[in-house]
């Protein structure tokens, strides 16, 4: 059984300008022990879909659909029931560690609170366990430094503290929302290594949200590609990177400058993402797609299931036999 089952998830926000459809009919699973990457540009709904899982959406949000975590439905349950799961079996780390830690409390009191609340540990045991966890994420002199305040740590160290805190109760699922975006590359490499080590050590599942395809290639087993609130394509790491089917995935990969090979001009995706207040009829990518045709401009978009968890939302018909790509080349418009 998958550890997390998301079915037909919709998240919308009522604003003075109208209803913003942030997540649009998204379904996916997270299996035991896997790292699922969710990639997309800003406004693609990647963060809002995990905030919905955590029950952390803004108060003007409406959620429909189903989110089942370890068999338990999370949509529509009260805060008390959610709190039993959150921080315990289900944890999240955010992009900016400074704003997620309480600046008035020491790391010690913020960490021990979690253990005392969820595990009923004594203060003494909780401190020992917290130090152990800080050690694990590579904080030197954890025993002394646990008494410090968040501002006394550097950005990379604060992110380690966040990870340690999220892991205290040995969650089954860790959600990492752009955990390395605010960090330098050398520190990012350290944090990605910690995440990989953790995953092997604790056998937990991770949802890793990022806009950086390099981070995905480094850390993930499976990838969901989101655009304008919709799940455009999903597949294994190799599927997505070596045989992308969706025109958006293809264009996204082609537009990244690479360290390995050189191109004179980067391929670009013309135009900009659609306004979430007024999504077009039909496919949300139609305005920027170089393979767009009449049927993309209205009606439902076909979801093509290629088996083995690989699917895409696109009217363009693909015949995939044994995962071998037939009939498409990744010829992306260069403008």
């Amino acid at each position: 059984m998958p550890i997390l089952e998301v079915k037909n998830l919709n998240v919308s926000f009522k604003t003075i300008d109208g209803v913003v459809q942030a997540v649009n009919n998204v379904s996916f699973n997270v299996e035991h022990g896997e790292v699922l990457g969710i990639v997309g540009e800003s406004g693609s709904g990647k963060s809002q879909s995990v905030l919905a899982i955590m029950g952390l959406l803004a108060s003007n949000a409406t959620v429909t659909g189903s989110i089942k975590f370890l068999g338990q439905e999370l949509v529509g349950v009260n805060t008390k029931a959610l709190n039993k799961v959150r921080g315990n079996k289900l944890s999240i780390i955010f992009q900016d560690p400074m704003t997620s830690l309480n600046p008035y409390l020491t790391i010690k009191s913020q960490m021990t609170e979690v253990l005392m609340l969820h595990k009923g540990m004594s203060k003494h045991d909780a401190v020992i366990e917290s130090i152990r966890m800080l050690d694990f994420v590579g904080i030197p002199e954890a025993k002394e430094r646990i008494g410090l305040y968040p501002h006394e740590f550097s950005g990379g160290m604060r992110q380690r503290v966040m990870i340690a805190m999220a892991l205290l109760c040995r969650p089954e699922l860790l959600i990492a929302d752009e955990p390395t975006t605010a960090l330098d590359v050398t520190v990012q490499a350290q944090i990605l290594k910690i995440l990989r080590d953790l995953q092997t050590e604790f056998k937990m599942s991770i949802i890793l949200i990022t806009h950086d395809m390099g981070v995905v290639a480094n850390a993930c087993d499976r990838v969901n590609v989101m655009y304008a609130g919709q799940l455009m394509e999903s597949g294994s790491l190799d599927n997505i990177f070596y045989e992308p089917q969706h025109p958006y995935t293809q264009a996204l990969l082609a537009s990244i400058p690479s360290l390995e090979h050189e191109v004179e001009r980067l391929a670009t995706i013309p135009g900009e993402p659609p306004n979430l207040l007024a999504l077009p009829d039909g496919c949300v990518f139609q305005g920027r797609c170089h393979k767009v045709h009449q049927e993309c401009k209205g009606g439902d978009v076909v979801v093509q299931d290629f088996g083995a968890g690989r699917f895409m939302k696109c009217n363009l018909m693909q015949n995939l036999t044994n995962g071998i790509n037939q009939g498409i080349t990744s010829n992306v418009v260069v403008n």
């Binding site: 050398t186 490499a189 350290q190 390099g214 290639a217 990177f241 360290l259 390995e260």
Partner: peptide, 21 residues
């Protein structure tokens, strides 16, 4: 330290990240 958008390259990269800050 720059992660490559190529899983095969990433898998075969065995460099120890730079320590410290």
């Amino acid at each position: 330290a720059v992660p490559s958008a190529n899983p095969k390259v990433e898998k075969h990269k065995h460099v120890k990240p730079l320590e410290g800050e």
